[in-house]
Design a protein around this nucleic acid. Structure first.
Length: 271
DNA sequence: CACGGATCCTGATGGC
DNA sequence: TGCCATCAGGATCCGT
């Protein structure tokens, strides 16, 4: 499931294998979030030239356009020699000369959209408002702090919105704010420069570590309970309501912000 | 225009 | 066991 690190790890898992492949057939299952925006047969004969990532979107470059793939809340991609029939939640399948790309997405919040080019209206509508890449050079502490000044809503909501920086999902929003010692309810515009710098560092550290770990999310780690050899990646606050803060022992608080759960420590995270 | 809330959909889980 | 309510890692759209 799809936080930025998992999207990136998914990309890395098949980009080399699929690049150069020619599309042979495309099959659609039930409707995803948006229509694909072309006749699937138009994809046949096109060549996959690359697979890139922008935020949580995968950009599958074709000889005659590109496919924007989003995994939503519950989507996952597989690439290989698919011999089995389409499953109940397989809603997109692309047979190529090098293997088959499949999207499995029970909740169908994901999408596969064809765009004629990266600057087309279709692509611009989906990618145009995205903030900077958290692991790229453009994401500096100074620019981050400056951007936060213009946002009146809570810092947690600002992180989730992805208009300043992409890739911080609901889990990592709580975790990075804990690492930075910032209360999730603080208005973004009130965050001082040194605190913005702490948050900037926390975002890069957490996302970098997750990518290096193969995209495994904190959620998956905590549900893989029992003897973990991966203690260092256990959530500090996420999904730990009422449990003792790992730093100070105070019970972790749970609130809701914009219909999403937020977890934090009242002692360690200052407004 | 910036913000907060409703919304898309299915499945897992917990209370009664 | 079943039935119902609630919640789930996302992001757009709509009303104020």
């Amino acid at each position: 499931m799809p936080e930025l690190p998992e999207v990136e790890v998914t990309r890395l898992s098949f980009v080399e294998k699929i690049s150069g492949a020619q599309i042979v057939a495309v099959t659609m299952g039930k409707a995803l979030r948006w229509p694909i925006g072309c006749n699937p047969s138009e994809l046949c004969g096109q060549t996959v030239t690359a697979v890139r990532r922008r935020g949580k979107y995968l950009l599958v470059d074709l000889s005659g356009g590109l496919l924007l793939v989003h995994l939503g809340m519950s989507g996952s991609l597989s690439f290989g020699q698919c011999l089995s029939a389409l499953g109940k939640h397989d809603h997109f399948e692309m047979l190529t000369t090098r293997g088959t790309l499949r999207l499995n997405d029970p909740r169908r919040f994901g999408a596969v959209v064809f765009a004629s080019g990266e600057t087309s209206d279709t692509a611009a509508k989906l990618l145009g408002r995205l903030g900077v890449e958290p692991l790229g050079d453009e994401f500096s502490a100074a620019v981050f702090h400056q951007a936060l000044k213009s946002k009146k809503s809570s810092i947690k909501q600002v992180l989730l919105a992805g208009e300043i920086v992409v890739g911080v999902g609901n889990i990592y929003a709580s975790e990075t704010l804990f690492l930075a010692g910032i209360r999730p309810t603080s208005r973004a515009c009130t965050i001082s420069k040194p605190r913005a710098a702490s948050l900037h560092a926390a975002i890069r550290l957490v996302l970098q570590t997750a990518v290096a770990r193969g995209g495994s999310t904190l959620k998956n780690f905590s549900s893989a309970d029992g003897e973990t050899g991966h203690f260092q990646l256990e959530a500090a606050v996420y999904d730990r309501a009422g449990l003792p803060c790992r730093t100070c022992g105070a019970p972790v608080k749970s609130i809701r912000q914009g219909q999403r759960s937020t977890f934090f420590c009242r002692t360690c995270q200052k407004p």
